[in-house]
Nucleic acid binder design. Structure first.
Lengths: 235, 235
DNA sequence: CAAAAAAACTGATATTTATCAGTTTTTGAT
DNA sequence: ATCAAAAACTGATAAATATCAGTTTTTTTG
């Protein structure tokens, strides 16, 4: 079932504009001539805030969290990247260091493209540059909405929105009628919603009592998406 | 006195990469051939969330807040734009609607460039496109840091950070040794720091008691920037 | 498959921040 | 300069959320 029209899911989480797809086969071959593949396991760090980038990453499979760590060690998850998404190109373009860190949330495959090849393709292909501008502009909308969610929504609303986003992120590869098991630790969920872990757990059992979801161990299954959207208090 | 090295002020608030400056005189003339100037007064809305953009804006003088309004009518200020900054080009590039609203915080001059002229220049000038990519990437860092401030800092820390940013934003046109009067309503300050207005006022008098600042009516003057940076708990 | 480790969960309490109902001060218009 | 309106400010209270100190369940590993 699609959420279009009910909840603007695309605005909250997806980078639907496929950036690489605008390249011709020839250009693609040029861009990926020095590409390397990496298999990552849960918790593996892909890049760390403050480090100097040497290339960009493409998520091939799995899920990656982008986050910032504060003084007390708490993580705030800023974005969740899935298959097909580009990561880590902003600091390459701006000549800065990484503004956040990225880590695999499960077994994940990523491709690494050296920054020289990326910048080279950008200079060669005006279409690619324009498409990247478009994709970044969209990401901007997503980040702006993230700010408003964190700053203006209550705890229960933030959790409900995080669950709606996660459900979409975990849909990948499943049939439409399948139940979608959201496989995420309570700690990661808390860091997404900006809540203490204990409060996430308490809210989850409230949602369960309301018939919104069920749990199987750590896995969360949304039973009534409309009720969940209502709980998110979306206007 | 510069804050470089003490507090990474640029990361938090400035779009220092001047986008228009890379254009030749000829290109500039082409871009600004249909430009119109507008004089705006305090509170005047420049664009509103959800509206369809028909061009981009350049702030010439004054200060503009970019914000989102929630169900209860509360504003969260996302960014504060000053002289030289481009506004409202993201939705033009992505073909979306405005993700946030913009309003003048004081008497302000803005230029309006029709989107056709902007897109035309982008197609004509690869240097311009690359520069825009660079500027947007930097903005990304700023937004990412905004998220971490809102999500991970305490109320007093958020207020201290807002004041540091505001002090820089109000520096424009003053001599280095001048006191910088931050002229902002308590309501706007609260909406920047993500606090209730009453708590901002209480915190301001705490800061005053600590010798960090003084007030003259609504105007705030930072007396000890090092103490303020300390209060922001920056590492 | 049993033991150990990790994660999920619970209840009580503390802390932070917002809300409400005002009073006082400042600002802007005549 | 005066008055009305708006903004700044104060104190008391309420609500939301975090923290602490555990117990129970689930997952992982030898």
């Amino acid at each position: 079932m699609s959420l279009n029209g009910i909840f603007p899911i695309d605005r909250w989480n997806f980078t639907t504009h496929s950036v690489l797809s605008v390249l011709s086969d020839q250009e693609m071959a040029l861009l990926t001539r020095h590409v390397t593949e990496q298999r990552l396991f849960k918790g593996d760090v892909i890049f760390r805030e403050g480090a100097v980038p040497s290339g960009i990453f493409v998520v091939r499979s799995g899920r990656v969290k982008k986050y910032k760590v504060d003084q007390t060690g708490r993580e705030q998850i800023i974005y969740l990247a899935g298959p097909g998404e580009l990561m880590g190109y902003h600091p390459v373009l701006s000549g800065e260091r990484y503004a956040d860190s990225a880590a695999a949330m499960e077994e994940t495959m990523v491709s690494f493209i050296p920054k020289e090849d990326f910048m080279d393709m950008l200079a060669r292909s005006p279409v690619f540059a324009l498409r990247l501008l478009k994709a970044m502009s969209h990401e901007f909308t997503v980040l702006t909405n993230t700010i408003s969610v964190i700053a203006q929504r209550t705890g229960p609303e933030r959790l409900a929105i995080a669950l709606i986003v996660l459900r979409e992120k975990f849909k990948y590869g499943l049939n439409d009628h399948d139940a979608i098991p959201i496989n995420i630790s309570r700690a990661d969920l808390a860091n997404m919603a900006g809540l203490a872990e204990e409060n996430v757990i308490r809210l989850l059992s409230e949602f369960k009592a309301e018939g919104i979801l069920s749990t199987q161990g750590r896995k969360i299954i949304i039973k009534d998406i409309h009720l969940l959207v209502k709980r998110a208090n979306y206007r």
